[in-house]
């Protein structure tokens, strides 16, 4: 391969034709190469899919292993705010940084019909509904391509931004692009996190409370509504109660912002036929005190360990009072 990066060598290799390089031999080699690539692609794809199902990189594997009754799902807001140890021994937080409503829908879709999960706490990000498939989190779904590519609906989400991408998914290997090392490594040496919760430890520097009154109002995107309907269907089919919350942000309550009223109304419409508990507009002075205390936050959008514990204690109370 040295010739591949040397001018003199590359010129020389063109000039010097080894006796073996007859057109027939080259054609045979290229045909064999094509067949080998296709065969390897499909076989290796099968093997990697088998590994994927057992790798701790796969979020579904965590839930399958934990067998929780209460499952928290959402993006980073939910990941850091919901401490499952506060909620009870059968709670698990499978929220993921950089994911969103589409990930929640996919996770619900992946649960078996006889799942142990009875309640899902959906830490809703209003932006997911307003932006739909154009949202910034959607591209992060590609992290779970091996899993999502198996389902026609989820595959459409995966390729919504680039429709030509669906042809890549015909390949067994391509869906593991950029992931293969992590998937295999976490299969050989799994990393199972008890309860799924890994809180942030840092504390936010002092800063004034934000003023969001000038932010524009946003309505739901059609693909955002479709995503909510998918969540609704998946939860209903598995007899799961949906508990919807809006994770705490420093100094204000996203659930009470008038700008988010249309988006939250769309959520309520989508979930009206579900076993559904709406905790997005909680009026609780303890919640206000919690979210105005900077010692609870690692940054403006994410709580730290103390904030996670404080919020989860409140959440446990609200669920007991309003969702039983």
């Amino acid at each position: 391969m040295a010739a591949t990066s040397s001018t003199s060598a590359s010129n020389a290799s063109a000039a010097k034709a080894p006796a073996a390089s007859s057109p027939r031999r080259v054609a045979l080699a290229l045909a064999a190469l094509a067949v080998a690539l296709v065969a390897f692609d499909q076989l290796a794809g099968l093997a990697l899919n088998w590994i994927w199902d057992r790798s701790s990189f796969n979020p579904v594997a965590h839930v399958r292993r934990a067998q929780p009754e209460i499952l928290a799902l959402g993006s980073s807001g939910g990941h850091y705010a919901i401490d499952p140890s506060v909620l009870g021994p059968n709670a698990y937080n499978a929220s993921r940084d950089g994911q969103g409503g589409f990930y929640v829908a996919a996770m619900l879709n992946a649960l078996p019909a006889d799942t142990s999960v009875k309640r899902v706490i959906y830490a809703l990000d209003t932006g997911d509904i307003a932006d739909g498939l154009d949202g910034p989190n959607v591209k992060n779904l590609s992290q779970y391509t091996p899993w999502l590519a198996r389902d026609p609906v989820l595959r459409d989400w995966l390729t919504a931004r680039k429709p030509m991408e669906q042809y890549k998914l015909l390949s067994g290997l391509y869906r593991f692009r950029g992931l293969v090392i992590d998937v295999v490594r976490r299969w050989i040496k799994p990393r199972w996190v008890g309860g799924g919760y890994q809180p942030l430890q840092e504390t936010m520097a002092p800063r004034p409370l934000p003023d969001l009154s000038a932010d524009p109002a946003r309505g739901p995107a059609p693909s955002g509504i479709a995503m909510l309907q998918h969540i609704s269907r998946a939860a209903k089919a598995r007899n799961i109660q949906l508990i919807v919350v809006v994770s705490p942000t420093y100094g204000y309550d996203r659930g009470s912002l008038p700008q988010n009223a249309d988006v939250l109304a769309a959520m309520r419409t989508a979930f009206k036929d579900n076993a559904f508990c709406d905790l997005t507009q909680i009026q609780d002075s303890r919640f206000q005190a919690m979210r105005e205390n900077r010692m609870h936050f690692a940054d403006g959008s994410h709580v730290n360990a103390a904030g996670g514990r404080a919020y989860s204690l409140l959440l446990k109370d609200w669920i007991a009072q309003q969702c039983n």
Binding site: T4, S10, A14, K16, A17, S21
Partner: peptide, 10 residues
């Protein structure tokens, strides 16, 4: 030439 094809692909 066949050699150019193979080296080019490589």
């Amino acid at each position: 030439t066949p050699d150019m094809v193979m080296s080019g692909l490589l």
